[in-house]
Design a protein around this nucleic acid. Structure first.
Lengths: 185, 185
DNA sequence: AATGTCATGTAACTAGTTACATGATTTA
DNA sequence: TAAATCATGTAACTAGTTACATGACATT
């Protein structure tokens, strides 16, 4: 039931799931979109693809075997799709919200394509709930410690709180948007 | 001129610079404050302290040498203080803003304690400018690619943009706050 | 007597990083 | 003809992770 893959692995798996690609294609995506803050270095991507293939989550097919470096196109396997979906479906935890927002956003970005709107809404609900629970804790922390902190330390914390508020607003607005769509149908 | 230390190293250096402490003290701080998303695991902290000491950025003094595991209290060296300050003073780059916001916030949190309000303001100015330059790029990306993206992908991107806006507002408000303080004196 | 806290550390493993390497084909 | 792009990979290194180990001392 555990993950077994790094975040990069799941990003690759998600992209390959959308349509089959080579390592080079994936590198270009990471180099151009900048999103997710993944590196496009070959030293990260090719070993990660190797791990995915070893775990039988993807399967590579050689194209143009004549050349020295034949292009290997990877496609997702049923096992890979299952692993990907179970990663998407994981419950949103407090720890995710506090120190792995990037992971959560990546999961959400892939979500309604792979699982549909229902799951996306459930995810947003859990996400909003965890943040809503965490903000008061941070605020209480500020209240009790602010006097002992330098101004810039206090402000840095304040920035964090405001980011959480932004995410909470975003999550609630997104839920509303999905509900609207639902009603239209 | 290059860094030579990881983010964890600088966090330790900054804390030790505030007042001398042992590895165990540092672990407790990371375990209790949760901020910065550092691990309190001994396997991270003790080796990092060892690297700092090898680089002569801190110096450990043994307390209670009688026991098997004597408490080692670290204090920052002049060289360490210099390295820390030059880390704080680094220019804010686009890359920092896009994929290393955590690093920037850590730097800022330590800033006016170590360098004073003037530098904190300069930092905020650079930070705001880089974000202000980046937001339109993201927006243009959304405009051109939104139609090809699934809804959740679009929303995830939108969340990112709103986080940047929040940080920009925060930076500008913080600058105003420092200016107010300046006028009062 | 059992648990928890103080306090340090190591070992095995993992997944990144940068830099290098190869060589064909396309473009300026 | 020089450079960029296509396309894959390896090597050496780095700094994390979890789990384990030690043992004194204080509390329940």
């Amino acid at each position: 039931m555990k993950d077994d893959q790094s975040l990069l692995g799941f990003a690759l798996l998600g992209l390959i799931g959308q349509n089959p690609m080579s390592g080079y294609d994936l590198r270009k995506i990471f180099a151009s979109t900048a999103l997710g803050s993944f590196s496009d270095s070959p030293g990260a991507i090719y070993p990660a693809l190797g791990r995915l293939e070893k775990g039988e989550l993807v399967h590579g097919t050689v194209q143009g075997s004549s050349s020295l470096r034949p292009r290997r196109v990877y496609r997702i396997t049923p096992k890979g799709l299952a692993a990907f979906k179970s990663w998407l479906k994981k419950r949103v935890t407090r720890d995710d919200v506090v120190r792995h927002t990037g992971d959560l956003m990546l999961r959400f970005a892939f979500m309604d394509q792979s699982l549909g709107a229902k799951h996306a809404m459930r995810f947003l609900g859990e996400f909003a709930e965890e943040i809503a629970g965490y903000i008061p804790i941070l605020q209480r922390y500020v209240e009790t410690h602010a006097n002992k902190m330098p101004l810039s330390g206090r402000l840095a914390l304040e920035c964090g709180i405001q980011e959480y508020r932004t995410r909470l607003r975003w999550a609630r607005a997104s839920i509303a948007l999905y509900e609207e769509k639902e009603d239209q149908v």
